[in-house]
């Protein structure tokens, strides 16, 4: 659906800024794909290259099997109508009503009045703002403005929706309702969604797959489940940690003794439901101290994360690790606490 091949973007200047370095992404039809990164990592340049709001310095952008850079400006305008976009700051026309804002893309292509009216009201009903048609954006809350933005983006029946930090200006409750709406857009209309965000929580709640971007490079990508349960790059680990606060309380930290062996155990899928720790304690007749733990759900699958300390013989610990690994549980020895 969206294919980025070796995209680089260099902003001229002294020194020139390399915002994207050889970025390649492949986004399947119908999926929700998230790109996460800190500000300045290149997310904004990345998403703007998909509709050529920013032209990559090198590399290819294919959307719906069409090489965008090969299009004339008229063809590009047509192609853009099939790639909707919503923005962090909503970018609505403050001087026009909600109705007019949503109708604008239709007016631009010269749709008839009656047709426009029908379509706009249908879209406003879909986003839950039919009763606000005659309001001005200044009279709406942030969440409502973003709903208008979504309705406007859907007006031209796009195949793709690009979300540029769409919930970053919203409070947590509103964020959740906008994410629910985006999920509905994906399900009901079958629209492929590409979003960029600095909030890992957005990725966790909405996305199927995720790419982590750092200093203009994609450092990791995979399903949300993979990246959350087993982040490999340091950047990804840092982002995952923002969700599952993995810092040990100071008092727990201090109570640990030097010879204690600390393990991080990640249960995924069905394993998360098994009483594996109890089995280990019985089988190895050892003391296990649970330092921290959580069980959450990711993409509908349970996911457990435990930090334990084992006292005693090093050999026993190795046996325990082996036993757990045989049961397809991810085990990592943690050298220093705080990971």
């Amino acid at each position: 659906m969206i294919e980025l091949k070796n995209i680089s973007k260099i902003y001229p200047g002294s020194p020139p800024v390399e915002a994207l370095k050889e970025v390649s992404l492949h986004i399947e039809k119908g999926e929700i794909y998230g790109v996460v990164g800190v500000s300045g990592a290149g997310k904004s340049s990345l998403i703007r290259s998909v509709n050529l709001l920013e032209e990559p310095t090198t590399g290819e952008v294919m959307v719906d099997g069409v090489l965008l850079s090969s299009l004339s400006s008229e063809e590009l305008r047509k192609a853009r109508r099939k790639i909707g976009m919503i923005f962090q700051q909503f970018n609505l026309l403050e001087s026009k009503t909600v109705f007019h804002n949503v109708a604008l893309p239709l007016y631009l292509v010269g749709k008839k009045r009656k047709e426009v009216e029908e379509k706009v009201m249908q879209l406003l009903t879909f986003v839950g703002l039919a009763d606000r048609a005659e309001h001005y954006p200044g009279q709406l809350s942030g969440g409502q403005k973003q709903r208008v933005g979504i309705a406007r983006a859907l007006a031209t029946d796009p195949h793709i929706l690009l979300c540029d930090e769409a919930t970053s200006a919203l409070d947590p409750d509103t964020t959740k309702s906008v994410l629910d709406l985006l999920r509905k857009v994906n399900k009901d209309y079958g629209i492929t969604i590409l979003l960029i965000t600095h909030e890992m929580d957005v990725v966790r709640n909405l996305c199927d797959r995720v790419a982590v971007i750092d200093q203009g490079r994609i450092v990791e990508q995979g399903t949300v489940y993979e990246v959350f349960t087993n982040p490999k790059s340091e950047t990804a680990q840092r982002f995952v940690r923002t969700i599952f606060g993995q810092e040990l309380p100071e008092s727990v930290h201090q109570s640990l003794e030097k010879q204690d062996q600390i393990l991080r155990i990640v249960f995924t899928g069905e394993n998360a439901k098994r009483p594996l720790i109890a089995e280990v304690i019985r089988k190895f007749q050892t003391d296990i101290n649970i330092l921290q733990g959580s069980i959450t759900e990711l993409q509908g699958k349970p996911f457990g994360d435990l930090l334990i300390s084992i006292q005693g013989d090093r050999k026993v610990t190795e046996n325990i690790i082996q036993y757990l690994q045989e049961h397809q549980v991810l085990v990592k020895e943690v050298a220093s606490i705080g990971v």
């Binding site: 047509k78 853009r80 109508r81 790639i83 923005f87 609505l92 604008l104 893309p105 292509v109 031209t156």
Partner: peptide, 12 residues
């Protein structure tokens, strides 16, 4: 941002 939104809609 308004101009950006306009471009995205395919406005001339």
């Amino acid at each position: 941002g308004v101009i950006e939104a306009a471009k995205v809609m395919g406005a001339t």
